[in-house]
Simulated assay, not measured.
Amino acid sequence: MFRDLSRPIETGMPTYPGDPDVTLALDATHEADGYATSELRTGTHAGTHVDAPRHTLSEGETIDERGVGAFAFDARLVDCRPLAPREAIGAEALPEPNALDDADADAADFDADLLVLRTGWASRWGTDRYRDHPYLTAAAAERCRGLGVGVGLDAFGPDPTPPASPEEAGYAREDEPDGTPAHDALLTDSLAIVENLCGLDGLPERFRLYAFPLRLRGGDGSPVRAVAEWEES
């Protein structure tokens, strides 16, 4: 079975604070030109997308330097719910190397290369509260790094997002990290980060996830068509 896990790209869609707005507009029409073409203006991190190491690391790998096979994943769904606004996801919420696997397995035998974290924040897409998503602690990011697995999320990303307004800042927690420590921990080892996923409800625990980016020369990330595949039982 297949399921699309990506957000439609459309004019006015939510974007990370400070990122370019998205517009998709007709450039030629059947009525005037006999054919249709459209102009798309977007940032590289709009909608459902993957990050390249260059996103937060000045000398990191660019999106076009990665082999295409790096964007086909053996994924494991991790249900982190329920979570409060801006709640930290600790390492204890993530599977151990031997969880559900052979008791003698170690990190090298971990049978997934992407943990898809279901936070429940997909339901807040299009609202200011989408910014108040949970995030990974440094320990959780290091757990992923130690396992050699990337992260997919139904949120803006693995680090906190700035609140929408001073009033919304009341939800921020005093111990929230500054900067992009979770991004840096994962991208330093070229581990995948797939952001703004949707449609995670009802997925099996194990599935294949395909998230192929545009081949942007020197790109720091790219929108993707994220698709889950699994065998129907």
Rank of each mutant, 00 (worst) to 15 (best):
S58I: 09
E65S: 07
S190L: 13
A88S: 12
A28D: 15
A93Y: 10
A226I: 14
I193S: 12
R118C: 08
T29E: 04
L100D: 13
F71K: 01
G12S: 04
A36F: 00
F2W: 00
M1V: 15
A25Q: 03
P17A: 06
L117A: 14
P17F: 09
G12T: 05
T127S: 05
A46N: 06
E231Y: 12
R225F: 15
G221H: 14
V194C: 10
A88T: 11
P95C: 15
Y135F: 05
V116I: 15
I89E: 09
D184A: 07
N196R: 08
D64G: 02
G152T: 05
G170A: 15
R81Y: 07
L153P: 02
R217N: 08
F212A: 14
L197W: 05
P134T: 09
S165W: 03
E96M: 15
S38A: 12
A105T: 04
N196A: 04
A93F: 11
L57I: 12
G150R: 02
H45P: 03
P82G: 07
D111T: 06
R81Q: 11
E31R: 15
L83T: 13
D4V: 10
E10R: 14
A88H: 07
H45E: 06
Y135S: 02
V116N: 11
W125V: 09
